[in-house]
Design a protein around this nucleic acid. Structure first.
Length: 114
DNA sequence: ATCTTGACCTAAT
DNA sequence: CATTAGGCCAAGA
């Protein structure tokens, strides 16, 4: 047995979801922050990919995840046209021009996972 | 099995 | 300041 200490791909996804689930209502988070929280600071890209698969999981508020600029880069991947923006606004987050206003204030930083 | 693309980020030029 | 390049992991052709 030994061997295979390598992380299963599913683990990576699960970790991402775990962090995203912790994002409080009315707050937003970034891909990079999440990546860093799960111990893969340079895998922000894969975090985004994980979000894509998270559409099935209703527990994961993917709309609260934006890029480090506060831009709604993933809005095109949501059903409908401006679903992501709508969801954010419904939580009290002001969005304009595909960017989160007061982004610095609303940004929530996840704590590193074990 | 290889190559390309993708909801990104950081550092270097 | 703007642009380029590299790195990461996963899925589709």
């Amino acid at each position: 047995m030994a061997a295979s200490i390598k992380l299963d791909k599913n683990d990576f996804f699960e970790r991402v979801y775990k962090v995203v689930r912790m994002i409080p209502y009315g707050r937003v988070c970034t891909y990079g922050a999440i990546a860093k929280a799960i111990g893969a600071p340079q895998s922000a890209r894969t975090v985004g990919y994980a979000m894509n698969a998270s559409h099935n999981l209703l527990d994961v508020p993917a709309h609260r995840v934006v890029n480090r600029n506060g831009m709604l880069t993933g809005k095109h991947h949501f059903p409908g046209k401006d679903t992501m923006q709508r969801l954010l606004i419904e939580e009290g987050i002001m969005v304009e021009d595909d960017c989160v206003l007061d982004f610095d204030r609303l940004l929530w930083r996840p704590k590193p996972l074990n």
